[in-house]
């Protein structure tokens, strides 16, 4: 059950003076059960790409395959609801989608739309809220009373409660404090590794990509630039510089060490092992 893009083009407002081609000839196959980062400069088509995954946008050319469903350009796609049930999409600034009177009700909204009974929905909602770390005492509050970070968590719980097989997150940590962002990334990692949910994450934060993700997809001006695993991606320092990607601190540090004559293995990707490596060599 793959996620596959074949020769996908997407154009906004085609045949008008505002026509804008956001994706050009995307050929891409994403691994299931992994955590994949989608990166690229603003306007490179990241959001447009992920909105194809649950048929919010339909390709203007080519074909998208998600799980058992195929979305072909120019053909009416009828299984929208089934697809959206299996692919949960968390939007940028997801806190703006909250609208129910209480936090719990808002989280129940998603599953109930997909035909889950109220009782069952409440049960799932409670579990989901616990997973994202919302305290029981906040369940009956209005979503508007919560802080920005908490609202975001509630919105994510609202998607998790749908029990998707694929979780797509569009810049989930934008605007959060550093600690809150770390916690949230930990959470996605846990969901991915423990519950076996495929996670796709659109992000600008290279530290997060390095620490939490398995694979990287790089977009530039609506085209696929590269797709590779994390290790290979961060090995190629020159490439990152050329693509205007700001490497994580540890990669920059390793690059400086290399320039000063200390070569470190490309397997070393976190502070602990780097410290051990340097200390080990120093002792010799």
């Amino acid at each position: 059950m793959p996620i596959r893009f074949e020769k996908v083009d997407f154009e906004y407002s085609p045949e008008t003076p505002f026509a804008f081609k956001a994706l050009t000839d995307i050929n891409l196959e994403l691994a299931m059960d992994k955590m994949t980062a989608i990166i690229g400069a603003t306007g490179s088509g990241k959001t447009t790409l992920v909105q194809h995954l649950n048929a919010l946008l339909l390709p203007t050319a080519g074909q998208v395959t998600v799980l058992d469903w195929q979305i072909k350009a120019g053909q009416k796609f009828t299984k929208v609801k089934d697809l959206r049930h299996r692919v949960g999409l968390v939007f940028q600034f997801a806190e703006y989608q909250l609208f129910e009177e209480t936090v719990l009700k808002d989280v129940c909204f998603g599953p109930q739309n997909f035909g889950v009974s109220e009782e069952e929905a409440v049960k799932i909602a409670r579990e989901s809220l616990k997973i994202v770390g919302i305290a029981e005492s906040d369940f009956e509050k209005s979503p508007l009373e919560l802080s920005g970070g908490q609202k975001r968590r509630v919105a994510i719980a609202g998607i998790l409660a749908m029990k998707p097989q694929i979780l797509v997150l569009d810049e989930p940590t934008a605007g959060l404090d550093p600690q809150g962002a770390e916690n949230m990334m930990e959470l996605f990692r846990k969901i991915n590794k423990e519950n076996g949910i495929t996670v796709l994450i659109v992000t600008h934060n290279m530290e997060h990509v390095l620490q939490y993700c398995d694979e990287v997809v790089v977009l530039e001006k609506g085209q696929l630039l590269m797709q590779t695993d994390i290790k290979t991606f961060f090995e190629n320092y020159e490439y990152m510089e050329k693509a205007n990607i700001n490497p994580p601190a540890i990669i920059r540090f390793k690059e400086l060490l290399r320039k000063n004559g200390l070569e470190i293995s490309s397997d070393v990707l976190d502070i602990d092992s780097l410290a051990k490596e340097i200390a080990g060599r120093y002792r010799k």
Binding site: Q51, N54, L56, K81, R84, H85, G88, L89, F91, A94, Y96, Q97, F109, G110, N113, F114, G158, I159, M162
Partner: peptide, 16 residues
């Protein structure tokens, strides 16, 4: 834009 975004977000949550 905002309406479109919320529309899409809710559609993702199964709103028809």
């Amino acid at each position: 834009d905002e309406a479109e975004r919320i529309l899409k977000a809710q559609a993702s949550r199964g709103v028809d």
